[in-house]
Design a protein around this nucleic acid. Structure first.
Length: 565
RNA sequence: GCGCCAGUAGCUCAGAGGAUAGAGCAACGGUUUUCUAAACCGUGGGUCGCAGGUUCAAUUCCUGCCUGGCGCACCA
């Protein structure tokens, strides 16, 4: 609908002022409903360009826009805004499209679907996930779902941190003071403990760092003992991670950890040297020299011959290019690594990688007392947050009547996890978040459970209904809340497209919250099942459509709905 | 020192050239013989960090400053 209107406006401007380059037309829902469904300030911009009074320009445009069956009227307001009011027919058509569940928005037509790789979550093995890791995981998962919905071929990769000096640290710590029996009892937490202890000891004894590097070097050279230890650690960690992803309903096309690229690393280094974009230093380390004037150069080989994160990322980049020919690769990684990604982008460009890479950066999850740090033990684990959220949700659901214990547990799980996910997804991706227990576990107001509740409420009404949904042929007198809801339905597709364009799921979550809020107002104000028959059918149609949009939208955020709660 | 990000209500945050800047939480008041009160309605609460500039129009863009966060080769 929006695209159609833009075409009309553009055509009329091009006819009126053929010599003028038409500015980009912004068409947005005005804040006030009385202004109609869409508005554009294009006449204000145009007035400036052609030196005419914006209002006159606007009036000319309005006059030239021929009658279209979807436009009921189009008027000039204020300094020169053009407001469009759609016909009832157009608005009701949109409702029936939603109900028929065909296409909830205008899909892009792809002859050949283009591939987008979303790389997200990337936890380090041997460490439990902190609440900070949640951001990458759920933002990535949501982007994955959104792009699939938009018709792309999406590959989800979890780039596991399963290689690097950290393993040297762990191996050294285990060999030096580890105990097999304690590790076996609770592998992940014991690995963490070893890692934390390592850093505590390293503070007073700097030689430990060298020892760790030595162990990692041995691992990279295929030392049997270290490799066996590494395999064990990875196996235990993956088991643990698998459980968590299942809980979060997050899935990947594949999980290629950094270790996957091991045998490509030598080639990467040699290629870079050959192409003259890297140089070998006297101490045997290899530094890449990007051609950017201000970016600091960085290493792809340590002086002891071992590789670094960048080396492995370059290998992954090459692998993606050769295997999938992606349109773009999205790296969902926190703000901290902004500089690193600039370096990566600069280097791979010199190597000749052609696909676009984007750093989908997000703000840090901070504690009120400062940055989280696993080493310092100042950290909140994801596991615990989910646990608490589910417990709190259970407290709410346990007194409900007509639900079995089994149902209550399952509902609590969905609600609790939905609350945690929504809390994160509803905030702008780029800004830092201060972790706040009360907010994360909140089940009221602008929250995941609010949306889930709205959905469950609608389903309850629909199951009790004896009439079928029907959109009336003849004109109905609509209440304000019905009109608002119908109007909101128009913008669903736009919210998804916008979220995709900005790689920001919070645009969608805001839309869904507003939609639910409008529905709840409507629900409160008018009876549905006790209304007169024609009206009842129509109100059921409105309810049904709201439920469809909520379910689809929440699914795109990675949040499930429940039929009862 | 250099670079990146941010500063909006008591708190946590949306909004990003357009019409009277919005939510949630917290505070206060109201709504249940009606379809789920995890809801709804209302009240109070703002120098959009500060100062300039660009523009018909700036909280939004530009510059400077202040404050906070993050980063700046052998970590990932």
């Amino acid at each position: 609908m929006k695209k159609l209107l833009i075409t009309y406006i553009k055509k009329s401007i091009e006819t009126l002022w053929p010599e003028v380059l038409c500015p980009e037309i912004s068409l947005t829902p005005p804040q006030k409903e009385e202004f109609g469904e869409y508005a554009t300030p294009v006449a204000l911009q145009l007035g400036k360009i052609i030196g005419e009074n914006p209002r006159t320009v606007a009036e000319k445009i309005v006059a030239s826009i021929a009658e279209h069956q979807c436009i009921s009227n189009c008027t000039v307001a204020g300094p020169g805004f053009i407001n469009f009011k759609l016909t009832d027919e157009a608005v009701l058509n949109n409702l029936s499209t939603i109900l028929s569940q065909k296409e909830l928005f205008e899909k892009r037509s792809h002859d050949k679907p283009q591939t987008i790789i979303v790389e997200y979550s990337h936890p380090n093995v041997a460490k439990p996930l902190s609440i900070g890791h949640l951001r990458s995981t759920i933002i990535g998962e949501s982007l994955k779902r959104i792009f699939i919905h938009l018709g792309y071929n999406v590959i989800a990769d979890n780039y596991l941190g399963d290689w690097g000096t950290q393993f040297g640290k762990l191996i050294y710590a285990y060999k030096s003071w580890g105990n097999e029996a304690t590790v076996k009892k609770d592998p992940i937490h014991e690995f963490l403990q070893l890692y934390v202890d390592f850093h505590t000891k390293a503070e007073t004894d700097p030689t430990l760092e060298d020892n760790a590097r030595e162990e990692f070097k041995k691992l990279e050279n295929g030392d049997t003992e270290n490799l066996a230890l590494w395999n064990w650690v990875v196996k235990e960690s993956k088991k643990e991670l698998h459980k968590l992803y299942e809980r979060l309903e997050t899935s990947f096309t594949f999980i290629h950890g950094e270790s996957f690229y091991q045998n490509m690393l030598e080639e990467i280094i040699q290629e870079a040297l050959k192409k003259g974009i890297a140089v070998q230093n006297e101490d045997n380390s290899v530094a890449v020299l990007n051609d950017h004037p201000t970016l600091p150069s960085t290493l792809i080989q340590r002086s002891d011959g071992a590789t670094l994160y960048l080396t492995r990322d370059l290998a992954a980049d090459k692998y993606y290019e050769e295997q999938f020919h992606p349109l773009k690769v999205l790296h969902v990684v926190s703000n901290e690594q902004a500089l690193y990604f600039k370096q990566l982008a600069a280097v791979r460009k010199q190597i000749g990688s052609t696909h676009e890479i984007l750093h989908i950066n997000f703000g840090l999850m901070r504690l009120p007392e400062g940055k989280m740090s696993t080493r310092k033990g100042r950290v909140i684990f994801l596991e615990q947050v989910l646990e608490d959220a589910v417990t709190r949700a259970y407290e709410m659901v346990k007194d409900r009547e007509g639900l079995t214990e089994e149902e209550k547990k399952s509902i609590a799980k969905t609600i609790g996890i939905g609350a945690v996910k929504y809390n994160d997804l509803s905030q702008n991706r780029k800004t830092d978040i201060v972790f706040d227990w009360e907010k994360v576990l909140n089940l009221h107001g602008n929250s995941g459970p609010y949306l889930q509740y709205t959905y469950a409420r609608i389903l309850s009404v629909i199951t009790k209904a004896t009439e079928s949904t029907e959109i009336p042929g003849q004109k109905l007198e609509l209440t304000e809340s019905e009109k608002s809801l119908l109007r909101k339905f128009l913008y669903f597709g736009e919210a998804i497209e916008e979220a995709a364009k900005e790689y920001s799921p919070n645009i969608l979550s805001t839309y869904l919250y507003e939609l639910a809020s409008l529905f709840n107002t409507f629900y409160q104000q008018v009876p549905i099942l006790k209304a007169e028959k024609t009206q009842q059918k129509f109100r059921l149609a409105l309810s049904q459509a709201t439920a469809e949009l909520l379910k689809t939208g929440l699914n795109l955020l990675g949040i499930n709905v429940v039929n009862k709660m």
